[in-house]
Computed example of a mutant assay.
Amino acid sequence: MGTVFSRRTAIAAGAAGLATVGFTGVSQAAAAKPPTVTKEYYGRVGGAAVSRYTLDSGHGLRVRILSYGGIIQTLEAPDRHGRAENIVLGFPTLADYVAKNSPEAGGGVYFGALIGRYANRIAHGTFTLDGQTYHVPVNNNGNSLHGGLAGFDKKVWDVTEVPGGIRLSVTSPDGDQGYPGALHATVTYTVDSQNRLSIAYTATTDKPTVVNLTNHTYWNLAGEASGDIYDQKLQINAGRYTPTDTTQIPTGQLAPVQGTPFDFRRPTAIGARIAEDDPQLLTGQGYDHNWVLDSSGSLAVAAKASDPASGRTLTVLTDQPGLQFYSGNFLDGTLVGTSGRTYRQSYGFALETQHFPDSPNHPSFPSTVLRPGQTYRTKTVFALGV
């Protein structure tokens, strides 16, 4: 299986890289102020109580997270003048998330949600593991997307508070959505005085299975529902990406980005080449592809985004081999966000740290197999700055 699930995040190396990407307006005296966590009742889903937690760094970063789906509902961060504003897309009510946040509910957007058991797509909802074929629900162009009809985005997670954040846990029983093995997963959200949101994932199983977890937050660094993100700049530290067929399943090729609209090795406006007559862009009606990160296995910078108007920056660090960049192509003006304003095409972008799509059907891709006695362990950091 390789080292995919046995490696440990290189905290020391990652910390050195993080030192330069936080919000720089924090004095030494203010930095001593610890983050806080507050809890409020937010409603019920299927008889289970849902809570909303607010994680406050004390320095302008404030994140609201639901126990339903582990959803990041809002995230406020300062601009260059120190003014905090919500910069992620979401719905105003719990009922909206239940009714609209997935393909089965008519939306298919997965705003802010935890994704599992398998993030992204599995071709035809079928894979073979140790000689046995498994079938998982098909819900996207004849393929399985983001865990199937009732993935981790629809579960009410158990939550415990930890210093600076919360730890969510859930057990997916053997056979859940067709996946083998009882999978126990935890996801820990924490914030710190440098305005970093860290997400740490773990999972264990009692039978061989496949697993690929991520978070599906949509970002708009100019502010939620402020308009399209075409002028915001993006850099992805990847020289290759995985082209897809017409149903957005990887062909198996690791193609060079050089000379294509997929070359974000230098900061480039998201809209600069999105309308080019490229077959891959036409398939996804924009960007909706996995980039093969240059560095994986230890916490390293995968991507950076910035908004010229507000001065906000977002730096994404991860130990994962892939990053799915989605430019919000299917936001069609039918969904109303937390501010009461309508979301139109490309009003937000997602940067999903992950293993490659359809890895169970591509032996040449990094393995997503998890076996009893092993621990799936990965970490992603979203560092907000100016």
Rank of each mutant, 00 (worst) to 15 (best):
A203V: 09
T260M: 01
G286S: 08
G322C: 13
Y189K: 02
I199S: 01
D192P: 02
A203R: 10
S296R: 14
S198R: 12
A255F: 12
A200H: 14
D307A: 15
T313Q: 13
P208I: 07
T313V: 03
A272W: 04
A303Q: 11
A303F: 09
T186V: 01
A203N: 11
L234C: 04
D294S: 14
V210P: 11
G239V: 01
A238M: 03
L281G: 05
N290G: 13
D288W: 01
V316Q: 06
D245C: 02
D278M: 08
L197I: 00
V292L: 11
L299I: 07
I199Q: 08
Y189D: 03
Q253W: 07
A300K: 13
Q253S: 13
E224G: 01
P279W: 05
D277C: 01
I236F: 00
K233N: 13
V187A: 13
S296D: 09
A269G: 15
Q324F: 08
G328N: 09
W291N: 08
L299H: 09
L183H: 00
P256Y: 06
G286T: 10
I199C: 03
V316C: 07
P308I: 05
T202F: 00
Q258N: 12
T214C: 03
L293P: 06
E224N: 14
K207V: 08
Q253Y: 06
D228T: 15
H184T: 15
Q232K: 03
G286P: 08
D288Q: 03
G284A: 15
A238F: 04
V292T: 14
L254T: 07
S295M: 12
T188Q: 13
L293T: 04
W219V: 08
A182C: 11
A300I: 01
Q232M: 07
T313I: 03
S310I: 06
Q235A: 09
Y241Q: 03
P279V: 06
L234M: 12
T209I: 10
Y218K: 02
F262W: 01
T315W: 01
P267W: 10
G223A: 11
T247P: 00
D206E: 06
T260W: 03
G239H: 13
V257P: 04
I229S: 04
A269D: 10
P308F: 10
T186H: 04
Q320K: 15
H216T: 05
G284Y: 00
V210N: 09
R196W: 00
G223V: 09
R312A: 06
A269R: 14
F264Y: 14
F325Y: 09
H184D: 11
I199T: 12
G284M: 10
D263Q: 04
